[in-house]
Amino acid sequence: MILYMFCFLLFSIGLYGVMRKRNVIKIITGIIICEYAANLFFILIGYRMGGRAPILSHETVMENMVDPLPQAVVLTTIVIGLATTIVLVALAVRLYEKYGTFDITKIEELKG
């Protein structure tokens, strides 16, 4: 239980970074932390105490294996997270070219 709570704590730390930080790069870092927390939570759900890798061959008996589905799922979310990060970092680079700063308070022109 305490491990799951730590996942949510990590998620909150990432969320804090997104909400409160002014630097574009730090906001992206916050999103990455959130992603790690969500992935970690998902993988922990599939874990069995003392379980072993879910690899099926002719000799193995199917007992005490960890759940393989979250592992497959988390692999996909990691790839999605990579794509998200690439898009956001590319936008940050272009933002820097236009504004000459990473400070979000100086970039903020759309209002009202």
Binding site: V24, L88, L91, A92, R94, L95, K98, Y99, I107, E108, E109, L110
Partner: peptide
């Protein structure tokens, strides 16, 4: 400028 900011 504005498009990039909105996109981000």
């Amino acid at each position: 400028r504005h498009e990039l900011e909105a996109g981000f």
